[in-house]
Design a protein around this nucleic acid. Structure first.
Lengths: 345, 345
DNA sequence: TTGAAAGCGCTAACAA
DNA sequence: TTGTTAGCGCTTTCAA
């Protein structure tokens, strides 16, 4: 329970010098620095971050806001953010909305408590009032997968992702391509889901291929829900597509299992492509568009810390940043080889 | 940026009364309370938690320490902890070891910074020095799945879990039962993995069944690693088991996929049972022992907050608490029905 | 490079 | 029930 005052006393310097020596800010003679560090370690001194934060206005604490910790994409991005924050000596305060359950209390209460140096907002959409409120609190914010107006954001080009995934299937010779995308829920993921869907529709149109309403499915991004939707879709042998583009790998897992349970072989009778880069895709042989979520988390923290440390003044780099994706071809996609007995229309 | 002093002034009371009115502690007349809350909302007052923490010694902030956010069990438990903490108005500071990568810095540095009212330690093992250090810091700790000597812990009976899973297979008529368990790494999960393994061995012995070294596998709890191990195990038709007990559902997923890729039907040619209660088990039809991780997280927080709020004095309930599990039978287990052409030894 | 001194914005005795 | 008065343990001007 030794305080900095005890350290200073033992080192034979003033409290101010001790503080400077320990924080590295301000100039301190080598001799004083040594005396202070020696005293500190002898006493087992650990600084009170409350006191430090109160006096300095910096808390070395970043809030991470996301809709679900329990989805692979978010958990993996969180891991990347965690690494970058640990390395920088920052604490990470987690705000998991759990859907919308805590959205309001986090946005209207927790985030405003001024104990954060900055906020990382993942897949979050804010209305005008919410944006204003949070910016008025003076907290630097960086978003991932926004869009958050007036807030620097990292994103992938979701339209491009949808187009590329769909074109991969089309270029293999598929003309009957379905899409399983996310919900159009307000306040979350909207642009992501609709971007990927727009890319799908664009690619289909560009190739002169028909869009059918029955081939455009919506699910909640979970494997289980995707399983149900896909099973329904594939049950009708006459009407079913030969390929499906899923907006996430977890959805693709569900789709693959549904196909297998219907006795359809992948990729012979159904090609499946996902988005994310989930490790489990390896053992399923899932073709996907990898978006390197871990890297997104790390990069977002770098951006945020730059903002925080420049005192919110200079934005480091362009306001918005497009992150890289990569088409990763495995065994779940191939040219359509529909066995005899199955007909297309 | 209004402070409590401004609120007090506008309400026409002293700062102390304003503080009491806002915190609900101490007695305040109805009239004063109204005046204060009115003034506070008029000014858009938000308390500085740094100042409050410094003055009161309570930070309303709980640290959660776990080895991987990206494993289903941990993410789900975290979700439960998050709910309980949000409901109680507490912040959650996340410390993700990412294996062992940040173990040392979290334990030796971050946790000691005295900004936490308590710590929830999940699947963590501490050596004597570490335990002493953390207890010396005066932070209340509750563990899940310890064991942490001198620290109240919630756990399931892992030996019982292993025994029950194995006995389920044995009672179906299996005599060739393999086990895919976790690593024996120091500092993490050790007791959990070895407990489940011990239960398996106990059940086999009690039934007079042979243990084979080749049937006792170790993996890192991931589906991918489990896939590799299982594929190896099952490749030899002469030597392979008819059932496998996996120490987690994610492992079981890997095992099921490996079996399918070898053309083995589940459950006819291989029965699989897991542990956890992963939702995705539904679509795979995985039989499992559900351990309700979400509930574990919630319950652990309740215990911890009781400790914190009782000022570390009275432990609420017994020091250690055994959590419930449930055998959930689906379609991945049945009596062995080995097709002709395959032989047992 | 150093020290003295004044807070940071709140809470908690204590006395009234 | 209320107000006065000290702090909580640091950081940071400012002057030396």
């Amino acid at each position: 329970m030794a305080g900095i005052r005890d350290v200073a006393r033992l080192a034979g310097v003033s409290q101010a010098t001790a503080s400077r020596a320990l924080s590295g800010k301000g100039s301190v003679s080598a001799r004083a620095r040594e005396a202070v560090t020696a005293a500190a370690s002898e006493l087992g001194f650990v600084m009170s971050y409350h006191a430090s934060s109160l006096a300095s206005g910096r808390s070395h604490n970043i809030g991470v806001v996301l809709p679900f910790v329990n989805r692979w994409y978010f958990a993996t991005l969180l891991e990347g953010a965690n690494s970058a924050l640990m390395d920088a000596g920052y604490d990470l305060t987690l705000y998991d909305f759990q859907g919308d359950r805590y959205r309001e209390s986090v946005l209207g209460d927790f985030l405003l408590r001024k104990r954060l140096d900055g906020v990382l907002a993942v897949s979050l959409q804010l209305n005008a009032h919410e944006t204003e409120q949070i910016l008025a609190a003076g907290i630097p914010v960086v978003g991932v997968g926004g869009p958050l107006p007036d807030i620097p954001t990292l994103r992938i080009d979701d339209v491009e992702v949808g187009r590329r995934a769909t074109n991969h299937l089309i270029s293999l010779g598929h003309s009957r391509v379905a899409h399983l995308g996310g919900e159009h829920e307000y306040g979350r993921n909207f642009e992501i889901s609709s971007g990927r869907r727009a890319g799908y529709e664009e690619a289909m149109a560009a190739a002169g291929l028909p869009l059918r309403e029955a081939w455009s499915l919506i699910s909640d991004y979970s494997a289980n829900d995707a399983y149900k939707e896909t099973k329904q879709l594939l049950a009708d042998a006459e009407e079913r597509p030969t390929a499906i583009f899923c907006a996430s790998d977890e959805m693709a897992f569900g789709a693959m299992l549904a196909a297998r349970d219907l006795g359809l072989r992948i990729p012979e009778e159904l090609s499946v492509i996902g988005v994310d880069g989930h490790e489990m895709g390896e053992i399923l042989g899932l073709t996907t568009i990898d978006q390197f979520p871990r890297n997104q988390g790390t990069r977002a923290v770098e951006r945020l810390l730059a903002l925080v440390q420049d005192d919110g003044q200079a934005a480091a780099g362009p306001a918005d940043e497009l992150m890289e994706t990569r088409l990763l071809v495995r065994h779940s996609t191939s040219a359509p080889r529909i066995p005899a007995g199955h007909s297309g229309s």
